[in-house]
Amino acid sequence: MIKTFTLLLSSLTTLLALTNLEVAQKSDDVMSGFKDSSSIMSMQLINARGQEKTRTMAMKVLEGDGEDKSLMEFLTPADVKGTKFLSYEHTQKDDDQWLYLPALKRVKRIASKNKSGAFMGSEFSYEDISAFNVKKYKYSGDAKEGLLNKKAVYIGKSVPISKYSGYTKLKTWIDKETFLVQKIEYYDRKKQLLKTAIFTNYKQFGTINRIGKITMKNIQNDKTTILTWSNQKINTGLKSKDFHKRYLKK
């Protein structure tokens, strides 16, 4: 009898368990649907000796199905003020990216094949800051349950599909109740732990969540980058034409 009950319970648990793909999809769902957003992003760079530099940027994002468009303008430091970065993300081909250099009034095309490149001198790579899409990763098996800071979480793993990714594996801690990402460990091409990102200060807009702070620590070089968003607004009515190349020069 006890054996039968244990077997039944075990089967039920297996049936109720979520796969890694399902957890990732639910996590994507609670962050999607914002249509567009505008915010001020602060990027705090801390080197291994503890020296700090801060850059601030005005950001606009237009949501697509994994193909977001974003326009970023540097506000500080003064020597890069007015520098703009325009990106059209794609799932089936490389992203389109342009950089505007105000001192020369020049728009430069950027090759975006290598996604592992550092984003503006930070510990974030271009693939870290691009829109999350489950189609960009391979998932297998069920998500494990565990605890992170006494919170129940799903612990999952995913493998980037792009051969140009800088990672071989991502280990993810996702809140079991809210499905918001709490932590990600990034493993490099040598399968060594490279970076750890902690996600905090989520802001809720109705049923939609937006991240407020990401602390990215590079385990191998001991550098840290903290991204903090403020003045976040969503669904402001931005259109595709607001991300035309003309706005780089405006």
Binding site: A111, N114, S116, G117, A118, G121, E123, G166, N221
Partner: peptide, 13 residues
């Protein structure tokens, strides 16, 4: 022609 190699050393390109 311009070819970029990423992550040469400590995130440099």
């Amino acid at each position: 022609l311009e070819h970029t190699l990423e992550d040469i050393y400590d995130g440099s390109s």
